[in-house]
Design a protein around this nucleic acid. Structure first.
Lengths: 196, 196
DNA sequence: GGGGTATTTTAGCAATGGCTATAAATCCGG
DNA sequence: CCGGATTTATAGCCATTGCTAAAATACCCC
């Protein structure tokens, strides 16, 4: 078994660059040439060889996003209380969506909200990932019922959907230029809906 | 003064069709050929002659949106109380973003959240219109202070931004497939933040 | 029916879209 | 230094993008 000609670029760094572009311009607003340029790849075939087609690259980029800039989401669920978890999630979103080192907003929200039929797969993937986030939050709330932090008759689906809506609204606000402080204020206001 | 050859299509009906397409596919996901097809115009020059270029058409479409499917927004502010106005606004959004006669979501949110540099003007126009909505809500809250519905020290900017965030979150939820009932529930939950 | 006006029609341009066949280059093990 | 493996490089395909010049058509008024 031999080795073959080595990659001329770092795969993970290239994925980070691709993430940046998709994040800023959305799936449909991103051309392959935008990607190769940003990723430091001189030619399209190298990109296709390494990451598959545009859809497949987008999917890999979303994984990278979840493990990188959006890592705080999973970590938020590790908070000792569900209320703390939601606060960590939303304050984390306020920070992440206004991080000067990244595009504004959340790629899961703005990556492909409305698009042509040709981008349907990408849109559906994002929809599924958003639904998965909501489900994860709901699961965290269920643990809170078991721990008697929340009453047994709390409407967890409703709560999870509400806070997910806050999250997504924050992402839109960030994309529109809201400041970090303003977003944190929104979170504080939103927490008024926490069951008492 | 003469008349010239008459239009072969109804301008307002054509705008409604264009709205539908931009709403469903976003600014960047919509091709001129998509528009002419949907608008019942056989050729591009007729469209350019009647509505200007893509950006200008998009702007006209947004006006049409505000006067049509999104008319409920302005009307909501006419409610006798500010709380009633916010409720009318958000419950109206729950209905409008899930209207089976229109695409899901809100064109102001999903029309151009993240896009290529070529769509910058469209994105900025949408951002401005969202900011205008937030400002209008804030103005309505100011009237409520004058009417002593709200305390003089209420943080109106914060409240307006919070409910705007709810509105935008609802739009994302709707685009992702949430049901009308679920969205109304979100509104009820969100109203817990109303000052007491 | 002719003049003036505004529209539609036809045809197409230059640029870009995603993607790929083919060939050259660079590695490893022997 | 050769053979197998893998990646890069060159070049380009075909469809579509937003948009437009030029010509043909249809109306009103006189």
């Amino acid at each position: 078994m031999a080795g073959g000609r080595p990659r001329a670029f770092d795969s993970e760094a290239a994925l980070d660059r691709a993430l940046e572009v998709f994040w800023r311009q959305g799936y449909e607003g991103t051309a392959i040439s935008d990607l190769t340029k940003a990723m430091g790849i001189n030619n399209a075939p190298s990109l296709y060889n390494a990451f598959g087609n545009k859809e497949q690259l987008f999917s890999k980029v979303l994984d990278r996003y979840a493990d990188g800039p959006a890592r705080y989401i999973r970590e938020a669920f590790d908070q000792p209380t569900a209320k703390g978890a939601v606060e960590a999630l939303l304050h984390g979103a306020a920070d992440a969506t206004t991080d000067p080192d990244h595009p504004r907003g959340c790629i899961t929200v703005q990556g492909a909200l409305a698009c042509s039929p040709g981008a349907r797969t990408a849109r559906e993937e994002l929809t599924a990932r958003r639904a998965a986030g909501e489900a994860a939050l709901r699961a965290r709330l269920e643990r809170a019922v078991e721990a008697q932090e929340l009453p047994a008759d709390a409407d967890l689906e409703r709560l999870a959907r509400y806070f997910t809506t806050i999250y997504q609204g924050i992402a839109v606000q960030a994309a529109g230029g809201a400041t970090r402080e303003q977003l944190h204020q929104i979170v504080d206001t939103a927490m008024a809906a926490w069951p008492r």
